[in-house]
Design a protein around this nucleic acid. Structure first.
Length: 275
DNA sequence: ACGACTGTTGTGGT
DNA sequence: AACCACAACAGTCG
């Protein structure tokens, strides 16, 4: 489900609901979500008494800064957070519940159970999986365009695949890669090593614009995404290519085409994005 | 009714 | 290095 704009919206909505809250206990219904530590009892024990001080985001990861620890959470396809009063009805597919001392609780729901959580000592989170290989995300202030361009220009892979690679640029998923390439006017099958510096610059700027606008709209809801307050996103109304198969291109009125690239559905305008 | 497809990522084989 | 098939799951759509 969520790509950078959805995760950022979740971060912003969740912050207001849980900052300053102290955990009393944790319930785990689907242990495989907990990747670190290995022992789920240890995960629970470590969290007791920890207070949520801040929530950060890196790419599609949420980082909960706690008193002494950092909880790194990836929502994969369907992960969601919500805050409830103790005793409120528990929605289906609720797998993890963080009980706070004030009687509220943070619940993690995930229909497909693909999400992951890793718990680290403060400061260690960037030196190990899953964050160690993660590239910078394009909304970071010190994003290195030079490094980004180098990685693209020495690659034989097609640009669609490169942009989905979180070790090259973090935060883009299937929706925003297709939208970024449309805005940039670049065909998804262009090889990395065929792109000029100027084209890569255009791609980077298109990504930033697309992501910033999507965040303004609270993300994209295709079928199930909601933020931490249960609200859907609005950016789906502004999609130019993703999910627009056979519709008229909003720029040139040619038909949007869908094809498979590396197993992923890929949408583009054959007129605006030529090889 | 059933296979194909889905906003993600990791692994193992070639 | 990089692609493919497949895996983890559950729901929806044609």
């Amino acid at each position: 489900m969520p790509e950078l704009p959805e995760v950022e919206t979740i971060r912003q909505t969740l912050r207001q609901l849980v900052i300053g809250k102290e955990m009393e206990s944790v319930d785990i219904k689907w242990p495989k979500i907990i990747q670190k530590p290995d022992d789920m009892e240890e995960f629970k024990q470590l969290l007791v008494g920890q207070t949520i001080e801040e929530i950060r985001r890196k790419g599609k990861f949420l980082l909960f800064d706690l008193t002494d620890l950092v909880l790194v959470s990836h929502l994969r396809m369907e992960g969601k957070y919500g805050v409830f009063q103790k005793g409120e009805e528990i929605a289906e597919h609720t797998h993890i519940t963080f009980h706070f001392v004030d009687g509220t609780e943070l619940r993690y729901r995930d229909v497909r159970k693909f999400g992951t959580m890793h718990l680290f000592e403060k400061g260690a989170e960037l030196d190990e999986k899953p964050l160690i290989q993660l590239a910078m995300d394009p909304l970071e202030e010190h994003f290195s365009f030079t490094l980004f361009a180098q990685k693209i220009q020495k690659s034989e892979r097609v640009i669609k695949n490169i942009l989905l690679d979180q070790t090259v640029i973090a935060g883009l998923g299937n929706i925003y890669v297709d939208e970024t390439l449309f805005l940039a006017g670049i065909h998804p099958l262009r090889k990395g090593n065929s792109l000029t510096l100027s084209e890569i610059e255009t791609i980077y700027q298109s990504a930033v614009l697309t992501l910033q606008e999507a965040i303004k709209q609270g993300g994209t809801t295709i079928r199930s995404y909601v933020n931490s307050q249960g609200q859907i996103g609005m950016f789906q109304q502004q999609l130019h290519v993703y999910g627009q198969t056979d519709k008229a291109c909003r720029k040139c009125h040619d038909k949007i085409v869908k094809m498979k690239v590396n197993g992923r559905g890929t949408h583009f305008c054959p007129t605006c994005q030529q090889l």
